[in-house]
């Protein structure tokens, strides 16, 4: 059942892999922060992605500029995520099972509302006009939009890295994660910080949803297809590690695209293999810290 690839096909697949990896990074960076830093098993992260994508679809339908739509969708999701975190999740701090049920409950509700509002048909908006073509180099055509996704993902990765590692806010986040009581004692408002991280994660997921819409299309079930991918990225890269999320995302992007081209029946299952290997050989993840 294995299909042989020509080198031109392989190059195109590689580009798709980078683009898909970029999307996965946007999705899982937030998931990794929420799961790794706040210890919240946010099972509605895939729903943020899907709902964000649907928001983007509607905004684009009304003639809004693509990037404005992506930002607005991210903003809307930040507000929704913030409300859920602040008023419902916050009261369940430290209780894993209730948090799981609450986020799962919201995931089901969001999925059903999306089905009601946007129907069961897939939506595939077009890419922004300036990015529709392809650039030619080395005798090959590179689709511009996929390169743009990659560029955005890299920019976000750098911005997140600077934020967490080099700013006062980042230092406060790291302090709040390492030792919340002491962080509170020295005057850091840990609870507000966590809400901020949650909003940021939700916004990134929605932004990724809009970015991915012209590439993956938006359809019911996308939420629970993306959630395990974010999960694998985090298990692969190590919880709370942005570098791990980046490496894990691209690894998964390659596996997904090449797997689908070479073993179409098993593409989805192949995605989980590196996760199983990492679990057995290095449970803390490739870039994870061992927590005492």
């Amino acid at each position: 059942m294995m299909t042989q690839l020509t080198s031109a096909q392989a190059v195109i697949l590689a580009i798709n892999s980078f683009a898909f990896g970029g999307l996965l990074f946007l999705l899982s960076a937030g998931f990794s922060l929420i799961f790794g830093l706040m210890r919240i098993p946010n099972l509605m992260h895939g729903s943020f992605f899907m709902l964000g994508a649907y928001f983007g679809v509607s905004l684009l339908d009304w003639g809004v500029n693509f990037w404005v739509a992506a930002l607005l969708s991210g903003l809307a999701m930040a507000v929704i995520g913030g409300i859920i975190e602040r008023f419902l999740l916050r009261r369940l701090e430290g209780q894993v099972l209730p948090q799981v049920l609450l986020t799962l409950g919201f995931a089901f509700i969001i999925a059903d509302i999306c089905l009601m509002v946007w129907t069961g048909d897939p939506w595939q908006p077009t890419a922004p006009p300036s990015l529709r073509g392809a650039v030619q180099a080395f005798g090959l055509f590179f689709p511009l939009y996929r390169l743009a996704i990659l560029a955005v993902a890299v920019a976000v990765a750098i911005a997140l890295w600077i934020m967490v590692d080099w700013t006062r806010l980042g230092a406060m986040i790291r302090a709040g994660v390492d030792d919340p009581p002491i962080a509170r004692v020295v005057g850091i408002k840990v609870s507000q910080l966590f809400t901020l991280i949650f909003c940021l994660g939700a916004a990134l997921a929605a932004f990724a949803g809009v970015m991915g819409a012209p590439f993956l299309s938006v359809y019911p079930g996308l939420d629970f297809e993306m959630l395990p991918l974010a999960l694998i990225v985090v298990i692969l890269g190590g919880t709370g590690s942005l570098l791990g999320a980046l490496v894990g995302s691209f690894l998964l992007g390659f596996l997904y695209n090449f797997g689908q081209a070479m073993f179409p029946d098993l593409a989805y299952v192949i995605l989980f293999l590196p996760m199983l290997l990492v679990l057995v050989l290095r449970p803390q993840g490739l870039f994870g810290r061992v927590v005492a």
Partner: peptide, 30 residues
């Protein structure tokens, strides 16, 4: 596999394993 972790980790790993089964049932049509 899942007992490599407890708590949230256990839950997440079992979720992923469940999705593998779903992937086989749904996609491995032959």
């Amino acid at each position: 596999l899942a007992l490599r972790s407890t708590g949230i980790g256990f839950l997440m790993i079992t979720l992923a394993l469940g999705q593998i089964v779903w992937g086989i049932a749904y996609r491995w049509a032959s």
